[in-house]
Design a protein around this nucleic acid. Structure first.
Lengths: 352, 352
DNA sequence: AAGTACTTTCAAAGCGCTTTGGATATCTCT
DNA sequence: AGAGATATCCAAAGCGCTTTGAAAGTACTT
């Protein structure tokens, strides 16, 4: 028994349509797919009939016949123990999905345990289930790039892998310059003790952020206190805990840079729990991925922030990937997005 | 030209394997798929060869041959203007994906504009691209259920559609009882002016939450002040704005119930901006979806909350859907999850 | 020894589309 | 009017798998 159920659901296949019209499947197929060698009148008839019967080519058959999956894979790796799905991911996906829809691609999502990540790509390639993939949160030297190049599977990295020797497509925010400007902005406000509550230490973007931060300090001849840089999973509680720890230092910072809005929320909680007031007693500056569920439409934003829409990054990544899939010989490309520096109420001049 | 590229990527197909082994495709296929009518020795040989050549059946061909897509669709509708991807979604997906992987299903994600939502399901069914779908954030009388039943496409609703007459699978938190208990808990603490910062008014869960809230008030002979119930998209800024508005009322509430942790964050910001202290001057109780990126491992939670893991709900939804797909005659089922009431530091007895 | 029942294997059909390589009809031009 | 071009359509092959229906080989009975 094959396809009985599907036959029930969708009795209108190409064969039926062709017979109904008294035409060959070839002609019907071509008429619907816009081939030139079909008579105008015929095409009209075919289209009308297709409309009438709500005909849509069976996706499975089409994929087999064309040898293309018309699907893009997004693998998200989750570690055993702390199974965190990056909240930023939802917005990125939203942007990417919009682009996929324009070109008729499906978005395939899969969460895989950390240790199976590489083999998951192998499987995907062997099954030939997707035409390309997006790589999320790359490490500084990410093994996935090499693997995907070996598998000859088109991909785009959201972010970069600085120490990788591979040739690859990427879409990234200029983290280094964003955090350089953020830090310098705080220095200009008179702050000298500036902490950085960063993401996980092995992630490429976190390393770049540290680099920008340190470059600003060194430009202004401020000694970087290594204690002031914290690394961790970017959750709200992490921001909170980090802040409490920072405020307990002999010399507490007068300004804190947070790596995401969620972390900033935690930082704020820590500050307020200590009876301090954000902006007045201590400044907060955050990186803001412009997440839809955090977005504030008020004139003056709450947090001063380096802002860049992760949704836009998603759209651009998808766009780049589709271009690569449709022309594999295409030169690999990197797209660098500059973040805006938005001044809100959370940063004030340092008390002297 | 068909499948050239894919041939490059994966030269090892069934035909090659069969020829290499000197067996028919039938036997090889059966050996790998665990059919009983194949000799033990033969099966060993086949499996060894498959391993050696890293053979994985081509997903496209398999799907066409079996008439099954081995994919589950998740359609998320986004409204023009405020394109919000529910952050809860990420965690739900994580739970569902785990279940899909167990049974070899792919997860197909698609964001569709509000107005195209219904037709998107038609397309999905006509293309026969998925074996089933999950319905997110249902309205009180959701049109999608009827449509999907007409299309004969298996589905599970995350939540319920109280006023719908359709027969359907669902997985839902007991919102009514959760919010009843939450409200009663606050009443027991002496609060009489309790506000509810709810989700969008047309969503089923929001209506149930209001119901639970009102039932508790009425049980304790407290007049429900309609002004105290607010409806809106559950973002942080919404929580903030609502709180500011509530505090400006002639009789400001002494306790606020928030519909999600994000909203609670906003509520807290509003409270603190007014120089009040959470817990001391005003109590906050939230519904907590136990989102991974908000989870706090500390002994005493910050927010008192009705807690229920949305990730678990995702897993259960997926499980129910797969069962329905594999046995379409299966009785439709509803799974009701009770939320826990966790007492944190954000609720204190009302000042008298 | 011949009939019956398994066990094990296979050739071929089929899933529903796209694409190749004609075939037929219609025009155009000399 | 006939050759060559052009427009329009079609039969059949192919995508890589699963599944059907049969055949061949083995073992067991009587």
């Amino acid at each position: 028994m094959t396809g009985n159920k599907s036959a029930l659901k969708n009795a209108t296949n190409l064969k039926f349509l062709a017979e109904h019209l008294g035409l060959s499947q070839t002609t019907v197929s071509r008429a619907l797919n816009g081939f030139p060698e079909v008579n105008y009148k015929t095409r009209q008839l075919v289209q009308a009939a297709a409309q009438k019967f709500n005909y849509q080519p069976n996706a499975r058959a089409k994929r087999l016949a064309t040898g293309r999956s018309m699907a893009i894979g997004h693998l998200v790796s989750v570690s055993k123990g702390h199974e965190i799905v990056n909240p930023i991911f939802a917005d990125f996906i939203a942007g990417a999905s919009a682009r996929y829809i324009e070109s008729g691609y499906d978005l395939l999502l899969s969460l895989v345990p950390d240790e199976k990540e590489l083999s998951a790509y192998n499987d995907l390639a062997a099954r030939d289930a997707v035409d390309g993939v997006i790589i999320h949160t790359p490490k500084e030297d990410d093994k996935r790039l090499k693997r995907l190049n070996e598998l000859n599977l088109p991909f785009v990295v959201h972010g970069r892998s600085t120490k990788s020797n591979e040739v690859y497509n990427w879409v990234d925010v200029n983290n280094e310059s964003a955090f350089f400007r953020a830090t310098e902005f705080l220095i200009d406000l008179g702050h000298r003790s500036i902490a950085l509550v960063n993401g996980m230490a092995d992630l490429d973007f976190a390393i770049r952020r540290t680099k920008g931060y340190e470059r600003a300090l060194s430009k202004h001849q401020i000694d970087a206190v290594s204690d002031y840089i914290l690394y961790g999973e970017m959750t709200e509680p992490y921001g909170y805990r980090s802040t409490i720890a920072l405020l307990d230092r002999p010399i507490p910072p007068t300004a804190i840079i947070a790596s995401s809005i969620l972390v900033a929320n935690g930082v704020r909680r820590g500050i307020e729990e200590r009876g301090l007031k954000m902006g007045h007693d201590i400044s907060i500056l955050s990186h803001d991925d412009d997440l839809s569920y955090f977005r504030d439409e008020s004139d003056v934003p709450v947090y001063s922030a380096t802002r860049s829409s992760v949704r836009v990054a998603g759209y651009k990544s998808a766009d780049l990937l589709i271009k690569t899939i449709e022309d594999p010989t295409r030169q690999r490309e990197g797209i660098l997005i500059e973040a805006d520096l938005m001044i809100g109420t959370s940063t004030k001049p340092a008390k002297s």
